[in-house]
Amino acid sequence: MNLSGGTVLAFDFGLKRIGVAVGNTVTRNASPHKIIHAPTNDGKFAEIAALISEWQPFCLVVGVPRHPDGAEHEMTVRCRRFANQLNGRYNLPVMQVDERYSSAIFQAGKGEYIDDASAAVILQQYFDENP
């Protein structure tokens, strides 16, 4: 996809939390933004809708995990479903990025959530792979 310009939101999807990062195609830098902790899907999508309303992104990015050898697993399917739901609900293009090692880049302390930082790694990878 040719990045014409604008804000991009990225998501590190998890069953309990969703990390969110924001960036734009001018600076091509991604920043951790927040972690969504809503206990229900409706609550998660309500928070995502508020973020989309606030940031007005021109596209969304979702990290899709795989095994180290590239094989798919259960979370691969769930993340793709999440990406499809984002596209269907918000009518925005959704790009999928291989997130195999996004969480491994950070050394998290006990009880520390890194989902927003992982989302920033996913978004930065998207920027780097799409000049």
Rank of each mutant, 00 (worst) to 15 (best):
L3R: 10
L3K: 07
G6N: 02
L9S: 05
F13I: 02
L15Y: 09
K16Y: 11
R17C: 05
I18E: 09
I18C: 04
I18T: 13
I18M: 01
I18G: 04
G19T: 07
A21W: 09
A21Q: 04
V22L: 15
V22D: 10
N24A: 07
T25L: 14
T27I: 13
N29E: 11
S31A: 12
K34V: 06
K34M: 13
I35H: 00
A38L: 03
A38D: 09
A38Q: 08
A38S: 10
D42T: 07
D42A: 14
G43V: 01
A46T: 10
A46Q: 10
E47R: 14
I48T: 02
L51A: 10
I52V: 11
S53W: 10
Q56W: 11
Q56V: 13
Q56F: 12
P57R: 07
C59V: 08
V61W: 11
V61G: 11
V64Q: 10
R66G: 06
H67L: 15
H67Y: 14
P68F: 10
D69N: 15
G70R: 07
A71C: 14
A71W: 08
E72H: 12
H73V: 09
E74D: 15
E74H: 14
R78W: 11
C79V: 11
C79A: 15
F82C: 09
A83E: 07
N84Y: 04
Q85A: 13
Y90Q: 01
Y90S: 01
P93S: 03
M95K: 04
M95A: 12
M95D: 06
M95S: 08
Q96D: 08
R100F: 03
Y101E: 02
Y101M: 00
A104S: 14
I105G: 05
Q107P: 11
Q107A: 11
A108D: 06
K110F: 14
G111D: 05
D115R: 02
D115A: 04
D115S: 03
S118Y: 02
V121N: 05
I122W: 01
Q124P: 00
F127A: 00
D128L: 02
E129W: 07
N130F: 03
P131D: 13
